[in-house]
């Protein structure tokens, strides 16, 4: 199984740049060396300097792709942990302009794929074209937009493609027959929502993940990464057994909330431990 999931045909590296000065990275390359570990942090929590240090530390500890959360006033797909982090980041004055600068600084020496996890309104309010131009220039590779389902993505998708950016699609346990349509058009990787509800640590999860991935495989060999609720190495291992990678957000954001500016070594150790669990 792992052979097929390695996607050697996609692992050749960057796709040609279409808008910015940096070459875009195909998000699928994150899965080229085996099971991928994808951490998430809310950008600007507790401040942008710490976010920058956290991203570098997570990359060094073995992250294969990193999600930067764009803080939003009303993140309806998030649980209390990430919502509180968004509120802290906004209270600290973080703006999307500063986030583009952060990505540009990281790009000076980081080569792994970087994506924004952002609600649609910050893109829309900034001006979709202006937002994507700046994202591409800064060196971002893709976007995850949790409130833009299959039916509404068309406009943004075309604008992303014009700049060589990828737009990640999500499937959920309720998606049922929608999975086929979504997977057939998905690019980069497919975000498999492990269970009902919002983001946040759970004690049990993922009963339907293997089924969902099997349904995807009927129409696509796109890498599948599982997110929502994963916090422990055991959970990560179990999910990686049935998918191509795992996404961890709230558990990391909770460490940042606990340790503040001192979170960097703690998060580095956590990421290394989780990575070791899925790719021994």
């Amino acid at each position: 199984m792992s052979d097929r999931l390695c996607h050697p045909e996609r692992s050749e590296g960057s796709r040609p740049a279409a808008g910015g000065t940096n070459p875009r990275r195909d998000l699928a390359t994150a899965f080229a060396r085996g099971k991928a570990f994808i951490p998430f942090v809310t950008a600007g929590d507790p401040d942008l300097e710490t976010t920058e240090a956290l991203v570098r530390a997570m990359a060094e500890a073995g992250a294969d792709l990193i999600e930067l959360g764009v803080p939003f006033s009303d993140p309806i797909a998030e649980g209390p942990v990430i919502e509180a982090a968004d509120a802290r980041a906004l209270a600290g004055g973080a703006t999307v302009d500063q986030l583009f600068d952060l990505v540009a600084r990281l790009r000076a020496d980081l080569d792994l794929p970087l994506v924004f996890m952002t609600y649609y309104n910050p893109i829309f309010a900034y001006g979709q074209d202006r937002f994507l131009d700046r994202a591409a220039e800064a060196g971002l590779d893709g976007l995850i937009v949790p409130d833009l389902p299959f039916e509404e993505k068309g406009d943004l998708l075309d604008a992303c493609h014009a700049r060589g950016l990828q737009l990640v699609s999500l499937i959920a346990p309720t998606s049922a027959e929608r999975i086929t349509a979504i997977a057939a058009e998905a690019e980069g990787f497919l975000y498999v929502v492990s269970s009902l509800g919002v983001t946040g640590v759970r004690t049990s999860l993922g009963e339907h993940v293997a089924e969902m991935v099997a349904q995807v495989r009927h129409v696509s060999d796109i890498p599948c990464a599982v997110g929502f609720g994963i916090a422990t190495p055991d959970q990560a291992r179990a999910m990686a057994d049935v998918a191509d990678g795992v996404i961890v957000g709230s558990a990391i954001v909770r460490l940042v909330a606990e340790h503040g500016r001192a979170a960097v070594p703690v998060v580095r150790q956590y990421v290394a431990q989780m990575k070791a669990a899925i790719r021994p």
């Binding site: 299959f150 999500l170 929608r178």
Partner: peptide, 10 residues
């Protein structure tokens, strides 16, 4: 429109 998470679409 329908700008909601995939979980709610069905």
């Amino acid at each position: 429109g329908q700008y909601i998470p995939e979980t709610l679409m069905n």
